[in-house]
Amino acid sequence: MKKLGFGGMRLPRLVENDPKSIDQAQVNEMADHFINQGFTYFDTAYPYHQGLSEGAFKKAVVDRYPREAFLLADKMPTFSVFKTEDYERFFNEQLERCGVEYFDYYLLHNLGEKNYASSVKLGGFEFMKKLKEEGKAKHIGFSFHDKAELLDEILTKHPEMEFVQLQLNYIDWESESIQSRKCYEVARKHNKPVIVMEPIKGGGLANPPEKAQELFKAYNKEMSYASWAIRYVASLEGVMMVLSGMNSFNQLKDNTAYMSDFKPLNEEEKEIILKVVDIINESIAIPCTNCQYCVDDCPKKINIPAYFSVYNSYHLYGDRNFPAMHYDRQSHGRGKASECIECKACERHCPQHILITEKLKLVAGAFEK
């Protein structure tokens, strides 16, 4: 199985700001090229393109190719499940939307603290095991955007989950809010194959700063910036698939070209990536090093470094990577940025001499509108 997957969250559109205006003709053309190049994995979900992504893949793939020609992954919308009966209802609707009798890979979608608790309470894991036993899901797993500690808990308590889908990319590798490396290491500890989402950080790494572009082009002027990001995660041990939300035929042609005969990053390329990370980090809005010195004495228990990490990502990449969702996750059980009382205990401990109370106002303004 080739390691590139066709993600259905950012399909080409006829009208740029209308997610429902899927360019079906272009999706069909892209699916044809994808399959003709030997790729098979298509990934969709119930809410993508306001509920139309599943149908777009039905038209492009399911209706036009034999079932054995492709692998289809879909996800249970855990955030919309409020009673146990909802699992069956959503799943049957997804089978109909996609026009299939089974999914090759089926996931509990977006297991964070809240959705995990709900899935435990309402029997989500039991439902997944039932699907596997009945042959309606060949492989079961979950997607995850939260702390590594929670991921470890889920995989410990639910070893029946066969794989995990994680946000991994070279700029989030050491991020305190995303915790790419930490989550990857937990998956490796539990010996679970990893499917990668957001390898290009919502498209942000396809257009890095000019100094980074110069480094990439000096090494190989033919390689796209996106190719560095995808090959970075595809080179990690235990990664079985890298999803790319390709929204044009040109993007798909580029990705399939270098992933058809995938070659892991060599040592020189890895060093270039490290330099690019430094270049990108130089342009961050808040120069926080995540030393955690500011946290201990905060009377409101504000997770300052995590908020700064989310804000820096937002400053660099805008709304591409759901920063509001990541901000909300950091605030569970902790004070929000707006709850700062300006006692400045944090600033007295900050070795970077950041005006933390002022920066928290920026964070609150961005995410507590």
Rank of each mutant, 00 (worst) to 15 (best):
Y307S: 01
E96D: 10
K20R: 14
I178F: 09
Q26M: 15
S119N: 08
I154E: 05
V81F: 08
V276Y: 01
G335E: 01
V277I: 15
A257Q: 14
E271W: 00
F308H: 05
L122K: 08
D104G: 03
F39P: 04
K130S: 07
Y314K: 15
D296N: 10
F144N: 00
I280T: 04
N220D: 15
N17E: 13
K300A: 11
T44L: 03
G99Y: 05
F216C: 05
F142P: 02
K221H: 06
F57T: 04
H315T: 00
C288F: 13
I341N: 14
Q37H: 13
A117L: 10
P193A: 12
G135E: 01
G365I: 07
E160I: 03
E126R: 10
N17Q: 11
P19K: 10
G8N: 05
G123R: 09
E268I: 11
M9A: 14
I280Q: 03
E339A: 14
Y41W: 13
F249V: 10
A218T: 00
G335K: 00
F142L: 12
A69W: 05
L355T: 13
P77N: 11
I284H: 08
Y65M: 09
V196S: 09
H353P: 03
N312T: 04
S143F: 01
I280W: 01
M197Y: 07
R181K: 15
A69T: 12
I284C: 08
Q330N: 06
H332Q: 09
H353T: 14
Y106H: 01
E134H: 01
H139C: 05
V194K: 05
R97V: 03
E347A: 07
W173L: 09
G8R: 04
F322L: 06
S80F: 15
E88V: 07
A212K: 03
T78R: 11
G99F: 05
A306Q: 12
